[in-house]
Design a protein around this nucleic acid. Structure first.
Lengths: 346, 346
DNA sequence: CTGTTAGCGCCTTCAC
DNA sequence: GTGAAGGCGCTAACAG
């Protein structure tokens, strides 16, 4: 009931020290677990006052003093304002956040369009111990953005891009999209498909080129008889994908297989084919890419390649923590395998 | 080619000042856009040195000095280590991050189990200007966690929970789940369904009780003839949901309708019914909840209630920014409407 | 327009 | 075991 029960202003280490009748130094020792230097009795007293005054240490002051950051920045460069809403990105961030949080690091997220990079806090301020980056857009722009981030002279982990030619303090974490493309390609070619249609979204996404390249690898290995056509939808929304496919079908003969750049695209295409009375997989095979649970929810089950997105995030987090501890990245490139998942009927 | 081209240590405001032959104060004025106090010539000189030295301002030092935080903390309390991977949460975070980033605030994410709350950085350190919280788990525990966060004496916005009885510096942002439940209930009752089976996940999720309550509202308003049975699956994974539903069907007669606590659950149930030769919606109607795009990907199209998850995040961000500007929340509670979406054939 | 002084909250160093 | 002094990088307030 005392007047000072709930001090209005935030308590500092000094307030705690005064209340516990010790010096600020002793409080600091308690806070940092240097218990060898504090008698159990004093310690109890200090801890009680911390509790009572609702004291919380100022991260700013501490980090300033010790010249260390306990936060990692995640920068997502994407033109769409809903950047994080993408399921893949979301999974990556989840894995990353978990690993970092487990090591008492905090994850600071900043999303922006490439054009806004120069003005972003993350570039103009020094506030994190390192960066992770996921960048979409045309290949040229992606390289430029990554290069700019590398110039910050802080540890950098980039997702889904190679970092050849960048400084040693940069590393990459990727899934084997090209290998996945080969799996998809082999699957289709083995079933005598020769006209392949790949539906890709309007915005360039780093991995998509690799998936297409993998499919081309397959075709080349098989003697180059088959043909891969790229169909670009306005966006990856359900409606835009269906519109693009519809317009293609109106002007061309049926392909042997439709390959979605990802599962939702594949499912949208498959449903359109169904609606038009085309039998899947009888007349046209449909395969997806980067499945999570989505492929389970469609009938017939989609053949797809499972993405280790969550594991990518975890791997990046671990790589960053190791880098911060050791002073250098142990590996420049982490390539995680994808898993081929055959649908029931395709 | 000078020796000092790339200083190894991070440049400070003093380094810039020395290089530009001005005082640190002038550099600070340039940095903060107080251009009235700086001649254009000096300004150019300072800016060139900032560029050349690759200077980036220390957020720690600045925030310490001005006693202000340019970051908002997002705390996600959930037993599952993949907390952020949930699509709903993900959308909320995306909306939140966008609004905050647009106002030059940063979003700091920390996920944890309820038991780890007390030990978390976010509780022990003072490092953000306010909190947003999404907390799962049993009702009792949720209340306790929210109460604990409110005690931090910082602005707090909680998602999907009411904050009656908490301090005035707490506000809530929710979607109208109960209203959504009524829409679902009315839809089913109007079609003469009277045995309703609602499939819910193992972990309690705040909104689910409200959805069930809305359905009960409907039943009561219709005279109480219909019955709502709750079926709890071990988790919300595809397999666990199907196992729970299968076991139920083995022991009970067919219900008139199956209500998924969310869309993926509903779709899993629907596919199981299909596989058992039960006609949907002929024999059993299936409806979902909290649809995003998922309902588009199933056939027949699921009847569902669309969630404004992204808008929830945006609203919370705006509420927090306003609170920081005005010193108090303008509203204690934000309730966003959901939209009923009728499937094609159900 | 530019410079000087002082101090935000904390921790390292050294003295007791 | 505990305390006192000094400074991390920055900016508000005040001189010039």
């Amino acid at each position: 009931m005392g007047v000072e029960d709930r001090p209005k202003a935030r308590a500092t280490i000094k307030d705690v020290a005064r209340a516990a009748e010790v010096s600020p130094m002793t409080v600091s020792n308690v806070l940092n677990g240097r218990l060898q230097f504090v008698s159990p009795a004093t310690r109890k007293r200090v801890e009680r006052e911390i509790e009572r005054l609702n004291y919380r240490r100022s991260t700013n002051a501490r980090n300033l003093r010790v010249a260390e950051q306990r936060s990692i920045g995640m920068v997502i460069v994407d033109e769409s304002p809903t950047f994080l809403a993408d399921f893949f990105t979301c999974q990556v961030v989840a894995g990353l956040a978990n690993v970092l949080n487990g090591a008492d690091y905090t994850l600071t997220i900043q999303g922006m369009a490439a054009s806004a990079l120069e003005q972003s806090m993350i570039l103009k301020n020094y506030e994190v111990g390192g960066f992770c980056a996921m960048v979409a857009g045309p290949a040229e722009q992606r390289r430029a953005v990554i290069h700019r981030l590398a110039e910050l002279d802080q540890p950098l982990v980039v997702f889904q891009a190679s970092v050849d030619g960048e400084k040693p303090d940069v590393c990459s974490v990727r899934q084997d999209d090209r290998g996945g493309g080969r799996l998809i390609g082999d699957h289709l070619l083995a079933r005598r498909a020769s006209e392949l249609l790949m539906v890709v979204p309007g915005q360039d996404w780093p991995a998509i080129e690799n998936r297409a390249a993998g499919i081309s690898d397959s075709i080349a290995a098989a003697g180059g008889e088959a043909r891969l056509t790229m169909l670009r939808a306005k966006s990856e929304s359900f409606a835009d994908v269906q519109a693009a496919v519809a317009s293609y079908l109106d002007q061309h003969p049926l392909p042997d297989a439709v390959i979605g750049a990802n599962d939702p695209i594949a499912i949208a295409a498959m449903l359109l084919l169904n609606d038009r009375g085309v039998s899947v997989p009888g007349q046209v095979r449909v395969v997806g890419f980067n499945g999570f649970d989505a492929h389970l929810y469609s009938r017939p089950h989609l053949t797809t390649v499972l993405s280790p997105a969550y594991a990518l995030g975890e791997r990046a987090g671990q790589a960053m923590l190791d880098r911060l501890r050791d002073g250098h990245f142990a590996r420049r490139d982490h390539l995680l395998p994808v898993v081929f998942e055959q649908g029931f009927t395709t």
